[in-house]
Computed example of a mutant assay.
Amino acid sequence: MKIVILGDTHMPRMAKALPPRLIAELETADGIIHTGDWQTLEVLHELKRFAPVDGVYGNADSPEIRELFGREKRFIFDGIAVSLVHGDGKGKTTPLRALETFREEQPDIILFGHSHIPYHERHDGIVLFNPGSPTDKRRQPEFSFGILETAGTGFSLRHIFYSSKV
């Protein structure tokens, strides 16, 4: 199973369309997870053209997006437990806030967004992963998103980096 992970799209302010590099991966995706800060429902509708979409809302999302998506989600993909939260809040770093949200549950993977900073580290036996942003790299050298591939009870998780969103 191939899941494309993205977040912090902030569209249409930061991009009028999905970047070609992202579209190339979406075309072969079995599913799509958005870590929040969609900004508009048009992003959801565009992503649905490629594969089933789920996600959470972020701190910059509208009430209509908040109604569609919860603040936290849990998934099982091929036996892999995946938890999802945007990661905004006060105190601690974004990765530590994400970890604290699900620490008691001990999922295999925690996906989060908010900071726009790609992140892939293991903490207390849990893999923490932030895909970065495919449209708003802020002070990062490149745009990014993630790919989760599962097979049986194993998984691989990686970033895709690129320099242009057009």
Rank of each mutant, 00 (worst) to 15 (best):
G79E: 01
F77Y: 15
D124A: 14
L68S: 05
K2L: 09
I23V: 15
G79L: 01
P95H: 12
D124Q: 15
E42H: 13
L22H: 06
F77D: 02
G91H: 13
I5A: 01
E64G: 00
D54I: 07
I109Y: 03
F69T: 00
G7T: 06
T94M: 09
Q140G: 07
E25K: 10
H123S: 14
H86Y: 11
I33N: 05
L111N: 02
K2I: 05
R139L: 09
D124I: 06
I23T: 09
L22D: 12
F112T: 01
Y57E: 11
D30M: 06
V127T: 12
A29Q: 05
G87D: 01
E67K: 15
G70Y: 02
G125M: 05
G146L: 05
M11R: 15
G113M: 06
G154P: 00
M11W: 08
P131K: 05
G154L: 11
H34L: 14
Y119M: 08
I147K: 07
L96A: 14
D61W: 10
L157T: 03
P20G: 12
I23S: 07
F161T: 02
I32N: 02
I109R: 06
H123K: 15
T153C: 07
H159R: 04
P20V: 12
V127K: 05
D61T: 12
G55E: 03
L148H: 04
